[in-house]
Structure formats: structure tokens, C-alpha cells
Design a protein around this nucleic acid. Structure first.
Length: 354
DNA sequence: GTCCGGACCA
DNA sequence: TGGTCCGGAC
């Protein structure tokens, strides 16, 4: 089997992108501009902005001579406007410090504002044929899958491993085609969802493909801590029957039968008297449980209460023996609580719903 | 609505 | 080390 890089280069030449507006020559200014625009932004969005930008600022001197406002105006709608400010600052610096000649090493390019390690390497490789590795989001995905690298790429150790791997794969020749090929591979075939493995030149030794892990690599970022909410859920028992209330159609658990809720800091018995006009006393607290939603995490403190036997009908509520309540549409954590209660108190006689 | 993403900054 | 910047894809 040919080396990884050879296959990427051959594929790029036959199937990769060659007609993007910054590929028409090896102008480092245009390549740099495109790489900055392509940070956090997809090619399809960038193309139009790029064309307008180079029409107005065709070279470094034009950009360095512009006002920041004019640069930002052409950036308007692309987002991440610090990119435009850094771009302008960098153009001025190149004019001053390099006499308007674009620096031609990754190190010097990377010293420009707004240019990190990967962008510097991309410009150095594409514009000057320098042998340096890139590692943008696309390449991280390709390498994590091909090498089967587990772990979130934002993790320092994982990212270090990816950089080492990227450098170990670099060919001696055809650096520009290889670099473009890695970008094209990630953008065209090795996409986040639905990768086109059958068309991939490095499928044969791809770890993720072999082990069926293309959809789990790269490891997604850890869930960020969701907001926490706390609530007390009341298990109100009257002669073996539990009070359930129907939730509003909208919002969490819309239309399901759930338990009465109280805020954590109120006294349960007081809350029941005020809200339902019922006399109750707390028996004990049940083990707390947590439930994850997409946008918050709910911590539930269930409390068991006994009612004085003066039950009355409440609109939107129902009294059910725990075993019968399990037949109703219950939210998952409520079902769990009710199931525990049904196991614990199976002997109460059933009685009709009031 | 959620997830994603380079560079920079606190 | 985690937050911030923004818009697009899904």
C-alpha cells in the first residue's frame, strides 16, 4: 500500500478542489486572507466575501493603506470581527517590518496577529511549499478517525498527539497538494455526519472505518455544565392513594401526569395547605434523584406526606393507587418514584378515582 | 434548540 | 484552563 500522504496527494489532484478563488495563483496575500476567512467559517460562505474583499483590497499595500472601518465594512456579516481587525493590523505590520513582502516561514507568519500555529502552517505550505503540518477542525477529524485517536481534541494531550501524528505523516514532496488534500478530505469526504468512506483514498487503513467508529470519532467535547434546578416533589398519600396532577400542555413534561411540586425551602405541609387546602404531615424524605434535560439538570427531593382523611376533588388532579398510577403517562423520574412507592406499599386496597 | 470552530485573553 | 467571539449546519 502506498504511503498515506501519497494517496492523499493523488486523490487531491484528481478529486480535490482546484478552482477556489484563492487557488488561482500562489499569492501569499490571498492565501493568507482566505485562511483567516476560513477560520470558523465554511468555504461556501467565504467565497463571496473573499471576492468582494480582494476586489476592494487587491494586495497587501491596499489593505495596509485602508482604514479599519473600511476593512470591517467588507467583513460585515462574516462574524468574528477580531479576525478583520487582526488582518488589518497584520497588513500594516508586514508593510512596516517586511517592506510589504509577505514573510515566508511558518514562524514569522505565525507571529502575525490572528495567525495561530495551524493557519501559519497552512499559509507557509500552500504559498511557500514549506514542510509544516496543519491541524484545523477538518484535519483533526480525519486524523482522529484514521489513527483511531480517542478523546476530545480540545484536550491538551489529545491535541498534542494529533499534532505529532500530523507531522509524522508529512510527505517530502508536494506539500501544497498534500495540505490542500487534507483540507479537502475533511471537507468533502470525511464529514462530521455521513462520511463518504467508499470514496476515501485512506479507507483501507482507517481505524474508525475498520472498527465502525466513524460516528463516535472524534470524541465530542464534554457536555458543559448545565444549569441546575432543584425541586421538591410531593408524594401525597391518602388511604393508599397518590395525588397526581396534570402538567400544562406547554413546557417540560407537557400534558403528563406528575407529582405536586414545591420549592426546596418551603415547608411541605404549609405548601399543601396553601395550595390544595389539605391537611398533611410529612412522613419522611425519599432518596433524591436527578434528571438530565437538554438545557438543565433537575434535582428532585421527593417527600412522602400523609394526608388527613378529608379528601376532596381537585380539578386537574387524580388520586390513584401507586400501582395504577404506573399505567398513566408519567415523566421518567416520576415513574421511578411511583414504582418505588408501589413496591413499598403494595398492600393498600384500591379505590376509585375521586 | 445544539453543536461546531482558531486564536486570543483573563 | 475556560471563556469569548459569531454564523451556519443539522
Amino acid at each position: 500500500m502506498k504511503p498515506f500522504a501519497d494517496r492523499v496527494v493523488a486523490w487531491q489532484r484528481q478529486h480535490g478542489r482546484h478552482d477556489l478563488p484563492w487557488q488561482r495563483n500562489r499569492d501569499p496575500y490571498r492565501i493568507w486572507l482566505s485562511e483567516i476567512m476560513l477560520q470558523q467559517t465554511q468555504v461556501a460562505t467565504v467565497v463571496g466575501y473573499f471576492e468582494r474583499f480582494v476586489a476592494r483590497f487587491p494586495d497587501l499595500a491596499a489593505l495596509a493603506g485602508a482604514s479599519e472601518d473600511d476593512v470591517l465594512a467588507l467583513w460585515s456579516g462574516l462574524g468574528y470581527y477580531s479576525r478583520a481587525r487582526n488582518l488589518h493590523t497584520a497588513a500594516c505590520r508586514i508593510a512596516e517590518r517586511y517592506g510589504g513582502h509577505f514573510p515566508d516561514t511558518a514562524e514569522a507568519i505565525g507571529a502575525l496577529p490572528g495567525v495561530g500555529r495551524s493557519t501559519a502552517a497552512a499559509v507557509a505550505a500552500l504559498a511557500f511549499g514549506r514542510r509544516c503540518a496543519i491541524l484545523d477542525g477538518n484535519v483533526k477529524r480525519v486524523l482522529a478517525r484514521h489513527a483511531g485517536i480517542n478523546g476530545w481534541p480540545g484536550d491538551r494531550r489529545i491535541e498534542d498527539a494529533l499534532w505529532r501524528h500530523a507531522e509524522s505523516l508529512l510527505p517530502e514532496q508536494a506539500i501544497a497538494s498534500y495540505t490542500q488534500g487534507m483540507m479537502d478530505l475533511g471537507a468533502l469526504l470525511c464529514t462530521r455526519t455521513r462520511p463518504d468512506c467508499m470514496a476515501c483514498p485512506v479507507r483501507r487503513d482507517c481505524n474508525a472505518h475498520a472498527t465502525g467508529r466513524t460516528h463516535t470519532l472524534p470524541t465530542p467535547r464534554p457536555k458543559k455544565n448545565l444549569p441546575e434546578r432543584h425541586v421538591r416533589m410531593l408524594l401525597l398519600l391518602d388511604r393508599g392513594e397518590l395525588l397526581l396532577e396534570k402538567r400544562p400542555a406547554k413546557g417540560i413534561w407537557g400534558g403528563l401526569w406528575s407529582l405536586p411540586e414545591a420549592s426546596e425551602d418551603t415547608d411541605c405541609a404549609d405548601h399543601v395547605r396553601e395550595r390544595y387546602g389539605l391537611v398533611a404531615h410529612s412522613l419522611r424524605e425519599l432518596p433524591p434523584l436527578s434528571h438530565g434535560f437538554t438545557h438543565f439538570r433537575l434535582h428532585i427531593r421527593p417527600t412522602l406526606l400523609a394526608l388527613a382523611p378529608c379528601t376532596k376533588s381537585l380539578p386537574g388532579h387524580v388520586w390513584l393507587a401507586p400501582a395504577d398510577a404506573l399505567d398513566a403517562a408519567l415523566p421518567a423520574p416520576v415513574r421511578k418514584l411511583v414504582a418505588e412507592l408501589a413496591r413499598e406499599r403494595p398492600l393498600f386496597p384500591r379505590s376509585p378515582v375521586l
